[in-house]
């Protein structure tokens, strides 16, 4: 069976002033197309590092990652960038919107960079989907946290990625806003059939995924269907 994401014997070690520090080791993970996976764990357990490796933002010290069948280890930085441009979308905890651009321009940016012609129409369509059609010309500092994250979600889905990586998408939001964002995220995910890899420390959010894995001290402890866990 072809997996959308496949991690084999994945490890990450960094050199610090006090010697080598192992952040991840022996991670084996497979994510099927259209599947939603939650990666949970305490702060410092290596969740964000794992997400970075799976998305090709960083390179592992050991093991390999196959993204939609392409071995990221065999690609250089530019090759990995191409894979991300073609297949990957992101939603970050800190939204990562450019403060000088309006909501519309933030959503348009990756499409413009990809050379898509109908970037503005698509951006407006997705901003409407997240309920921000009235705020397209507002700048991020003029939007609430929840609204900013909705812009980030519109930006991610407007490119129609095959895989969406979400890093603590509700980590900076209150619980009510968080729930709204989660509904939006999972709704659009279901609609587009996107593979979702979600990093969270919220049990409730993790439970909405089809499967979850838990990290502790850089090792994968539990892996199984969310309902079973």
């Amino acid at each position: 069976m072809a997996y959308m994401i496949q991690a084999e014997q994945l490890g990450k070690t960094v050199t610090t002033a006090s010697g080598d520090l192992t952040i991840l080791q022996d991670i084996n993970l497979r994510v099927e197309k259209g599947e939603s996976l939650a990666i949970t764990g305490a702060s410092g357990s290596g969740k964000s590092t794992l997400l970075g490796l799976l998305a090709g933002l960083d390179v592992p010290s050991q093991g390999r990652v196959l993204l939609a069948g392409e071995n990221l280890g065999e690609l250089d930085e530019e090759g990995r960038a191409r894979v991300r441009a073609e297949r990957v979308g992101f939603v970050f905890q800190s939204f990562q919107l450019l403060p000088g651009l309006t909501a519309l321009e933030n959503v348009m940016l990756p499409m413009e960079l990809g050379g898509q012609k109908n970037a503005e129409a698509r951006a407006k369509e997705y901003l409407a989907k997240v309920g921000l059609e009235a705020r397209v010309h507002h700048y991020p500092p003029q939007l609430s946290g929840g609204e900013q994250q909705r812009v980030a979600i519109a930006r991610a889905f407007a490119c129609e990625p095959e895989i969406l990586f979400a890093d603590e998408p509700t980590g900076n939001l209150d619980s009510a806003t968080g729930n709204t964002i989660n509904d939006l995220l999972f709704g659009l995910n279901a609609e587009a059939g996107t593979t979702l890899v979600l990093i969270t420390h919220e049990e409730r959010l993790a439970n909405r995924c089809a499967r979850q894995v838990q990290l502790a001290a850089g090792e994968l402890l539990i892996s199984g269907a969310a309902a079973e866990l």
Partner: peptide, 16 residues
């Protein structure tokens, strides 16, 4: 710096 990191995460190549 953050803008470039974001652009790269979105798949924009360094040369571009």
């Amino acid at each position: 710096v953050n803008q470039v990191a974001l652009l790269k995460s979105l798949g924009v190549q360094a040369a571009r």
